[in-house]
Design a protein around this nucleic acid. Structure first.
Lengths: 188, 188
DNA sequence: ACCTGAACACCGTTCAAGT
DNA sequence: ACCTGAACACCGTTCAAGT
């Protein structure tokens, strides 16, 4: 009843708190990341929080670093992508980038990064990894190094742009538009 | 007794609150900028604050913009400097930059800028003005445009460096060191 | 026109006691 | 090993009443 996310009947782990934080932050923004709010979501009282974390500051830090690891999983996806033909690789990146699972979190982290330096640098690091993968792909497509750089940037920037222009969840139309744009980027 | 800054016997103006904010922030850091703290400094109670400002957010904004104006006064100083011979101009800039009146505020604004974007952009704007004045001066000293740029940057960066390396107030030794450095920068 | 002071709201943190 | 719930601390904000 009160709890929508806690493991049925069991007690919570730090991981549960982090997942709860992701959901709240994704749906209600960083402003909503208040202890009381997370407790209500998990169906526990305030005090229990302090069994898992020292304070709100370290909880936020845990969220950020956990998001970084989430992105590292993506990096492994990118690594696997290397075996695919380049054009398909780009499509896979589009899919990965806007997967419903990461969509909102991606946006909210960018917003959070505007006021929190740790988040900002996590976002930059994550961006760099995507950018590198895209650059390599364009090189594999036969573009000279510098042009591959430029195209990778445009490719990625467009993705981030779509991210902000579209609604709360990735719609099919957006994905299609991006794909068309990728077709365009790949030519010439 | 309780009040160290309020106009004797009179009531306060928004300007008094801003000046109080500068003193507190300069001596105790941004963390200390709490309503209660400012009230104690001015010898009034919390409620009176709301006569002058809507809330803490707008008070902080007022502080920042007021600091910007303070720096604009400096800009006028720089404008007057143009009539001085270039080498003296640099010395005047050193003096102005590290005047006891601005020294602490300068430091604290840079610190504050690390967590507040509005402050950060105010700081950047102020820096740019100093930098431009320095660049013009090096040009007037006969350096070609690009080298004037570089020397101005070094000149200014050294100043900022001294700002952070020295104690809470500008000591004579620091000023002397900077002056010696300026001598070096001006040659060749 | 400006200030007091009580009241309130909102959060985070601690901790003894529970299961 | 994890949670409750009361208590506390810390701030900002409101507002009726004062001068």
């Amino acid at each position: 009843m009160a709890s929508n996310a806690a493991p049925a009947g069991g007690r919570l782990s730090a991981e549960d708190w982090i997942q709860a934080g992701f959901v709240i932050v994704a749906e209600e923004g960083i402003r909503a990341l208040k202890l009381e709010r997370v407790c209500k979501y998990l169906g526990v009282t305030r005090g229990s929080f302090y069994w898992h974390f020292d304070d709100m500051a370290s909880y936020r830090a845990a969220l950020v670093s956990s998001w970084g690891e989430l992105r590292d999983t993506d990096r492994q996806v990118f690594a696997r992508l290397r075996e695919m033909p380049p054009r398909e690789r780009l499509s896979a990146m589009v899919e990965s980038f806007i997967s419903p699972r990461h969509w909102r979190l991606e946006r909210v982290m960018r917003e959070w990064g505007r006021t929190d330096r740790a988040v900002a640098s996590s976002v930059r690091a994550a961006d760099k990894r995507v950018l590198n993968a895209a650059r390599d792909t364009f090189r594999d497509l036969g573009f000279p190094p510098e042009e591959a750089d430029t195209r990778a940037k445009v490719f990625f920037a467009t993705g981030v742009g779509f991210l902000h222009l579209s609604g709360p969840r990735p719609d099919r139309a957006t994905v299609r538009e991006w794909e068309q744009f990728v077709d365009f980027m790949v030519k010439r």
